[in-house]
Nucleic acid binder design. Structure first.
Lengths: 175, 175
DNA sequence: TATTGTTATACTCTATAACTATA
DNA sequence: TATAGTTATAGAGTATAACAATA
């Protein structure tokens, strides 16, 4: 059968996994950005700090590859964080072209607060599910992500415009 | 306890539901846009056509509210589809300021193809899960979306730049 | 010749505000 | 006065290409 007339009842958007994921993904990143804004951090800054905390001294290019963004964008992100005294560009011991990025103590304090805010938001996002279903959902999402060959912990477009993080604005607690 | 030092082991990004949703959401909308591109449709066009198929004769403002976008953006979307002969702007029977939007037969044909492409993509996206887990994931996502008070079938930022849909390009099949 | 960091440019998308014609 | 549609404008974000320093 060449079914060119289409199915009698098309799948509603609210039942499409792709649509649900797109809708929830945008919502999650927007709300998470709102939670991070009081700390003066953009979601991308959070991801950058988190990745850097996993290994000090990485180059900008390495971090850009890890985060799935272009090195040009990385320049601006590091500029922001350096202006705020959260990261330092030091001489790379082995390559004089590259910068070795290092977190400051203030950054580790602020990152801990950001992780706490993220934990709170994640809990609230899934608050309607019991613990079993929460774990089930996370596992299912991880399986789908793995099947799509998405790198673990990498997300290039984390929140473009939910908040504007001026280097000299809104940092009530740390720094 | 004022836990300002943070937890000893921060939650990895790959275990955060907010991060997984953001990552998968962007991935889904990007890949879906690629599937739709051969039809000359942007995801937003697809959503517009799908909503309009549910009720012909709506005004641009009504559709914009339904889709969660501004009426200014709706103008451009309707322009695209009208240029391609997929929708018609007719006189509204009750309000001479408004346009009554109507789908053409070509649009219904193309929409059926797009729905088919969406079904195919959704199936592939979840191909790694058996039927039980697929249904479970969709239900869990719907519950989380409902808890977040997300309107059913509404997603404003559906794919900004994965493909550029020129009104006079790339329409192999219909129209 | 290739690569790191940087800067400049153009392009896209969005948000805001205006304008008109109707209500 | 408020609303539907339209247009224009400015802003943010991105991508591409170049450049200097170094490998």
């Amino acid at each position: 059968m060449t079914d060119t007339t289409g199915p009698p009842t098309p799948t509603p958007l609210g039942e499409r996994p792709s649509f649900l994921l797109a809708q929830l993904g945008l919502h999650a990143v927007t709300r998470f950005a709102e939670r991070l804004a009081p700390l003066g951090l953009h979601p991308r800054h959070f991801v950058l700090l988190a990745h850097l905390a996993g290994g000090d001294g990485q180059t900008q290019q390495q971090l850009a590859d890890t985060m799935g963004i272009h090195r040009n964008v990385m320049v601006g992100l590091v500029d922001d964080l350096e202006d705020r005294g959260l990261v330092q560009r030091r001489r790379h011991p082995a390559d004089r072209r590259a910068h070795a990025l290092h977190l400051t103590e203030a950054a580790r304090d602020l990152l801990a607060q950001a992780q706490h805010a993220a934990d709170e938001y994640d809990a609230e996002l899934l608050a309607t599910l019991d613990e079993t279903d929460q774990a089930r959902l996370i596992t299912l999402l991880q399986r789908v992500a793995a099947h799509a060959r998405l790198p673990v912990g990498v997300h290039p477009n984390l929140g473009q415009r939910p908040c504007d993080v001026a280097p000299d604005a809104a940092r009530p607690a740390a720094v």
